[in-house]
């Protein structure tokens, strides 16, 4: 698993030090010139240029087996979609390679969003999705609220599994 952002290596090293992501390889792409631009995942308009939220499954032959680009910062695909795309490739399991940043010393930045915030953040999001979905008679709107609620529930469940809850 590879995580790409416009953060530099020191900031990514700092994030890796805080978040339990032992098999995530961090790739720094400041300016978006290396990965993000060529993948159509760079948004030059937001915050001076950052990644669009996305997930891509690349098959061993280099083809793109799955691609999801979020409509906004909170729009992410689901684990079920991702695992479905991976399982459809029919590959043997491999030992996950070690992750981490490409280099750089952790910069000591603590981050505005820390691991201890995650379950609280998504529980709050879930309740908001329930409340807002219930305010509308519009089916399309309610479907969006439901999708957001399910995303929150999946994230909370994954976090609980990771932490043995």
């Amino acid at each position: 698993m590879i995580a790409v952002s416009t953060d530099d290596e020191a900031r990514q090293a700092g994030m890796f030090a805080r978040w339990p992501t032992p098999h995530v390889r961090y790739v720094a792409d400041p300016g978006g010139d290396t990965y993000l631009g060529s993948l159509g995942l760079f948004d030059p308009e937001e915050r001076g240029g950052i990644a669009r939220p996305a997930l891509i499954v690349v098959a061993p032959d280099g083809s793109v087996a799955y691609r999801y680009v979020g409509r906004d910062f909170a729009d992410r695909t689901t684990d079920a979609e991702m695992f479905g795309a991976l399982e459809a490739l029919g590959l043997d399991a491999i030992e996950p390679p070690a992750g981490g940043p490409a280099g750089g010393e952790a910069d000591g930045h603590r981050g505005a969003f820390r691991p201890e915030h995650l379950p609280v953040y998504f529980r709050g999001n879930r309740m908001a999705a329930v409340a807002i979905g219930g305010r509308s008679e519009d089916r399309g709107f309610r479907a969006i609220a439901r999708e957001h609620r399910l995303m929150c529930e999946a994230t909370i469940a994954a976090w609980d599994r990771l932490n043995g809850a």
């Binding site: 590879i2 995580a3 790409v4 993948l39 499954v57 061993p60 793109v64 991976l86 491999i94």
Partner: peptide, 30 residues
């Protein structure tokens, strides 16, 4: 996808090992 290039070694290394790659983007550690 990008062609063979040292810049893309994280992807290519996993593919050479017979694995699929999940590439995700995130908005930065603010």
């Amino acid at each position: 996808m990008p062609n063979d290039d040292a810049l893309y070694e994280p992807i290519l290394g996993l593919r050479r090992g017979g694995g699929a790659v999940v590439l995700l983007t995130y908005r930065g550690d603010w």
